[in-house]
């Protein structure tokens, strides 16, 4: 009897070992409903799609200009629903205008009927410190030197313009430091986020808005270089609050 019990025990034990030791992790996880929002960013100049390296555009100040570089950060995207509740992405996104597409994916948004969206152009002050972002080439090239404040460029908008003598000159519209953070105005949206119905939102930047409303920029008068010049960066910052519209 003893032998039989021991045999039974060992038999069951070996099966247990077999079963436990080789168990694959097959625990089922509840599939989260897809409530993602895809934001597609495009760049225009007064309704004309941006074409880099071509002097085709005119700003309100009367300058003909072209664009050679457009890099910036968007952060803290906040969407508000019709109940007044908000969803904050709490993330920072790098945008390079030369990319074939610039897409921001907001994952697992609460369902609801969203009616407005706002965000920052630049980095939230808590994040705008040197080396806070991943050290990839894009972020390293956006670094704002510590000797003039540290953190990152919020915006690099560069190109050429024709000066009053019709000579091609360069311009570099750069923004940085916490005081120059652009809080973009709230944009009305009509967005119903439902389970398993991912949605897409088009966000368009009109580059000419950087040169108007409220200040009409004229390179020949206001200058063509803003880096670390607070007075000029402030003009640019104020112009930047309405550069985006919803497509």
């Amino acid at each position: 009897m003893k032998t039989r019990n021991l045999g039974l025990f060992l038999w069951l034990f070996s099966i247990l070992i077999f079963g436990v030791a080789c168990k694959k992790h097959v625990t089922l996880e509840a599939t989260k409903p897809n409530t993602n929002l895809r934001i597609e960013i495009t760049h225009l100049i007064d309704n004309i799609p941006l074409l880099f390296d071509s002097i085709n555009y005119a700003n309100k100040g009367g300058n003909k200009y072209s664009v050679t570089r457009l890099n910036y950060y968007i952060s803290d995207i906040i969407l508000q629903n019709n109940k007044g509740e908000t969803f904050n992405s709490n993330s920072t996104y790098y945008v390079n205008g030369r990319n074939a597409s610039n897409v921001i994916n907001l994952l697992e948004m609460p369902t609801g009927n969203y009616t407005s969206m706002r965000f920052l152009i630049g980095l939230n002050p808590t994040e705008n410190t040197s080396n806070s972002l991943e050290n990839n080439v894009d972020n390293l090239n956006m670094a704002w030197p510590e000797v003039i404040g540290g953190g990152y460029h919020f915006l690099k908008f560069e190109g050429y313009y024709l000066d009053s003598a019709r000579t091609k000159q360069g311009f570099t519209m750069h923004l940085g430091t916490n005081d120059m953070l652009v809080a973009h105005q709230s944009l009305p949206i009509s967005l119903l986020i439902e389970e398993n119905k991912p949605d897409t939102l088009g966000l368009q930047m009109n580059l000419n808005e950087w040169f108007q409303n409220p200040h009409t920029w004229n390179f020949n008068v206001d200058g063509n270089y803003t880096m670390a010049i607070p007075a000029l960066m402030t003009l640019l910052k104020n112009n930047g609050t309405d550069v985006f519209t919803i497509e």
């Binding site: 560069e158 360069g170 311009f171 270089y225 880096m227």
Partner: peptide
């Protein structure tokens, strides 16, 4: 010449 060469 690159726009970055235009200075303050």
């Amino acid at each position: 010449v690159d726009p970055l060469m235009t200075k303050r």
